[in-house]
Amino acid sequence: MSMEFLDGNTILYSAAFGLMLIGIGGIVISNHLMRIIFGIALLEAGANLLLLLSTYHEGASAPIIVDGIIPAMMADPVPQALVLTAIVIGVGILALALSLAIRVQRAYGTLDMREVRLRLEQEICDEAGIEMPSSSEKPAEVIKTPVNSVVQQESGS
């Protein structure tokens, strides 16, 4: 392993791991659904880059025979094919996430993850016919709908 600080591998692998870290950070820290979805996209991009780098070596040519000439050193075609697959899968899932986000936004009027969760919980409890368990955490401040007051009334009665 090279000890030089800024060799090619270092930069590329840092980029891959960095993208993954940023993506995970976005998913874990953020509450907004769009940001979370973008976080997933970034995380996937990082993982794809990591996959592509797995057998990367400098100076290799594309694994294509042009005019019958076989290049001396060809890149590994497998990770390229895998990444192609992974990207397409990612696109499909991203589109699906966006469609769902549109519907959730239409139903709940918000894309804030905490609030969506609260509303979901409320919906499940309503359907089941039970009171919503009061949470020890403080409720999200953004809530304007009278979710809390309903709970209080129910538990008071």
């Binding site: 997933i40 993982a47 990591l50 990770p79 996430a97 993850m113």
Partner: peptide, 28 residues
């Protein structure tokens, strides 16, 4: 139902997170 959409979306977020990690594991 709107509940099923919301829970799918939350599932998707967790699942997408996991899938990307698995992909990174395969890369390693």
């Amino acid at each position: 139902t709107s509940g099923s959409f919301a829970s799918t979306l939350r599932y998707l977020v967790i699942s997408g997170f996991g899938a990307a990690l698995a992909l990174a594991g395969i890369a390693l």
